[in-house]
Measured scan of single mutants.
Amino acid sequence: REWTEQETLLLLEALEMYKDDWNKVSEHVGSRTQDECILHFLR
């Protein structure tokens, strides 16, 4: 499923705060797994 604008904003926000702590990043996004966050980030 597609990422919403809100999810993408949360991802970018989390990356600024937590860098590459993907566990914390995915918790911050809330609706995505670590793997989904990493894959989206790599696009």
Results as ranks from 00 to 15, higher is better:
E7N: 00
T4D: 02
S26N: 02
K24W: 05
G30N: 08
A14M: 00
M17Y: 09
R32L: 01
K19T: 10
C37E: 02
E7I: 02
S31R: 07
C37V: 08
W3Q: 06
W3V: 07
L15T: 14
E2L: 13
T4A: 05
L39A: 13
I38K: 15
A14L: 01
T4C: 01
E27R: 10
V25L: 05
T8C: 10
E27C: 04
A14P: 00
C37H: 05
N23D: 12
L9E: 10
S31M: 11
S31W: 10
L10E: 15
M17K: 12
S31P: 04
G30K: 10
H28I: 06
D20N: 09
K19S: 06
Q6S: 10
L42Y: 13
E36L: 00
R1M: 14
Q34N: 11
N23L: 11
K24N: 03
S31Y: 10
F41Q: 15
E36A: 03
L9D: 09
L42D: 15
V29T: 06
L15C: 12
K24L: 11
H28E: 01
I38T: 14
E27K: 11
L10P: 04
V25M: 11
L39H: 13
K24Q: 11
G30L: 02
L39M: 13
E27S: 07
K19Y: 04
N23Q: 09
V29G: 01
T8I: 11
T33K: 11
V25N: 06
W3K: 15
V29Q: 02
S26V: 12
E5P: 04
R32K: 13
T4G: 01
L10C: 09
E5Q: 13
E27Q: 06
Q6C: 04
V25F: 05
W3I: 06
W3P: 09
K24M: 14
D35R: 11
D21C: 10
E5Y: 12
I38D: 10
E16G: 08
I38E: 15
D20L: 03
F41N: 15
G30F: 05
L15V: 14
Q34S: 11
C37T: 03
E2S: 15
E27F: 05
G30C: 09
Q34L: 09
N23G: 12
V25H: 02
L42M: 13
T4F: 05
A14V: 00
R32D: 00
H28A: 04
S31H: 09
F41C: 04
A14E: 01
F41V: 03
W22E: 01
Q6P: 11
E36V: 00
E5W: 07
L11G: 10
L9A: 13
Y18C: 03
E13M: 07
D21Y: 02
T8V: 10
L15S: 13
E16S: 06
R1I: 15
Y18M: 03
L15W: 11
E5T: 10
G30T: 09
L11D: 01
L9V: 10
A14F: 00
E13L: 02
R32W: 02
E7Y: 00
V29H: 00
V29S: 00
R32T: 03
T4N: 13
H28N: 00
L15R: 15
R1W: 05
E13G: 07
C37Q: 07
W22G: 02
E27L: 03
L10S: 10
L9P: 05
K19G: 06
E2G: 13
W3S: 05
M17T: 09
E13W: 02
V25T: 11
L42F: 13
L10R: 07
R32C: 04
E13H: 06
Q34P: 10
R1Q: 15
E2M: 13
E36S: 06
K24H: 08
M17N: 11
F41W: 14
D35V: 02
G30Y: 08
L39W: 06
Y18F: 04
L42C: 11
E13A: 09
L39Y: 08
C37R: 02
H40S: 04
V25A: 10
C37A: 05
E2I: 15
D20E: 09
A14K: 00
E13D: 07
Y18A: 04
L11S: 01
R1A: 14
E7R: 00
M17F: 01
K24Y: 08
C37W: 00
Q6K: 08
W22N: 01
E5G: 06
S26D: 04
S31L: 03
E5C: 08
D21Q: 08
D21S: 09
D20Y: 09
L15F: 07
L15Y: 14
L39D: 15
E16R: 11
E7D: 02
S31A: 10
E13Q: 05
D20F: 05
H40Y: 14
E16D: 08
N23W: 08
E27W: 03
H40Q: 09
T4V: 02
E5R: 05
R1P: 09
E16L: 01
T33V: 04
S31T: 14
D21W: 03
W22S: 00
N23V: 11
Y18H: 12
E2Y: 15
E27V: 03
Q34D: 09
L42H: 15
H40D: 07
Y18L: 01
M17R: 12
T8F: 07
R1L: 12
F41K: 15
L42S: 15
S26M: 13
L11M: 05
H40N: 05
Q34I: 09
L11T: 04
R32V: 03
L39T: 14
V25E: 00
G30H: 01
D35I: 04
Y18G: 08
M17V: 10
E2H: 14
T4R: 06
S26R: 13
S31E: 12
H28P: 00
Y18V: 04
T8E: 12
M17I: 09
T8R: 15
K24V: 04
G30M: 05
S26I: 03
M17S: 08
M17A: 07
